[in-house]
Amino acid sequence: MASDRLASDGPIDEPASLFATFRFAAVISWRDFRALYRWYTYVGGWLVRVLAQAAFLASVGLLVGSESVAHRIAIGAACASAATGALLAIPLATMERALGTAAVLVVSPAGLVPSMLGRAVDRLVDGGVMSTTALVAVFAYLPEVQLLRPSSLLLPVFAVAMAYSSTCLAMTLAGAALLWPDARNLISSTLTVPLTLLSGAVLPHEPTGRLALVSHLLPLGNGIRGCRELALGHAAGALLPLLGELLVGSAWLVAAIGSLRVAQSWATRRAGLV
């Protein structure tokens, strides 16, 4: 029976086999992350950059003479930092082409999808850690927000949820970046500002009309609303936005799977990704 399975030319579609491939790729992503950073370079470099970015954006509110706007933007900027690391999944996905392993993944029994999604796990963790750190710093700094209360325990949950949805969005676009690797940095860099604006992270007021609908469908939007509810101590009011953020992330996960399958199909027909 085992030999028949090994001799089969069909792709592996058993959930256990696909999950094993995903898990192995996730381990590789963690090793790549450890090779890229040391604790002192991560804390003293990457995290400081994120906190400085949140402080800079919050200063915009102070320039217009409104502390409430500054505090609102500070929370939004801390949430948006979840996408900073997550969107790096787009250029990092094209490293498989540079290393010459993308074509091997395409023709492998498990296919391209579980490997690519597994390699993006470190981006999810990175985004969650950065957003959690920024949110805790903002909550500890703002005078009207109490960090030490039960509702603040949800901050890491929101951070991971926003990193999850942002990573799934990045992997959706990674399918295009795999086919056109020269556009990888252009895609990831030009996405940051529109995502930050359309999600309402740095807007002085809550988005309305069509912009409100867009913010509900994009990553970060629901999570930002939930974190602002937590800042007011409304843990119950933050649960619905948390659920919305997870649903948005799951929708983008489905889109990412479809995008990577299109990239694999295109590569198979045209002998690409080499």
Rank of each mutant, 00 (worst) to 15 (best):
S3G: 06
D4G: 12
D13G: 09
S17N: 03
V27P: 00
I28L: 11
W30G: 12
R31Y: 15
L36S: 04
L36P: 01
Y37R: 03
Y42P: 09
L47P: 05
V48L: 14
A52K: 08
A52S: 15
A52Q: 03
Q53M: 15
F56Y: 09
S66F: 03
A70E: 08
H71V: 03
G76V: 08
G76T: 02
A77N: 03
A78G: 06
C79D: 05
A80S: 13
A80D: 09
S81D: 01
A83S: 15
T84G: 04
G85R: 00
P91H: 11
T94G: 10
M95P: 00
E96V: 08
L99R: 15
G100R: 13
T101G: 08
L105I: 00
V106G: 00
S108G: 10
P109I: 07
P114F: 11
M116R: 10
V121G: 09
R123G: 02
R123W: 01
V125S: 04
V125Y: 05
G127F: 04
V129F: 01
S131W: 05
T132V: 00
L135T: 02
A140E: 08
Y141Q: 13
L142C: 15
L142K: 11
P143V: 10
L147C: 10
L148D: 08
F158G: 13
A159K: 07
A159P: 13
V160P: 11
A163M: 06
T167V: 12
C168L: 10
L169D: 05
M171H: 03
A176S: 11
N185L: 14
L186P: 11
L186W: 14
I187Y: 06
S188E: 12
P194N: 02
T196R: 00
S199D: 02
A201S: 15
V202D: 00
V202F: 01
V202S: 02
P204L: 01
H205G: 00
E206L: 13
E206G: 07
T208Y: 05
R210L: 12
R210M: 05
R210D: 09
A212N: 06
L213M: 13
V214Q: 08
L218F: 09
G221N: 13
N222I: 02
I224T: 07
R225A: 14
R228S: 04
H234D: 15
H234A: 15
L239K: 08
L240E: 15
L240N: 07
P241L: 13
L243S: 15
G244N: 12
E245S: 13
E245A: 15
L246V: 14
L246M: 15
S250P: 07
G258H: 06
L260Y: 02
R261P: 06
A267S: 14
R270C: 00
R270P: 01
G272P: 01
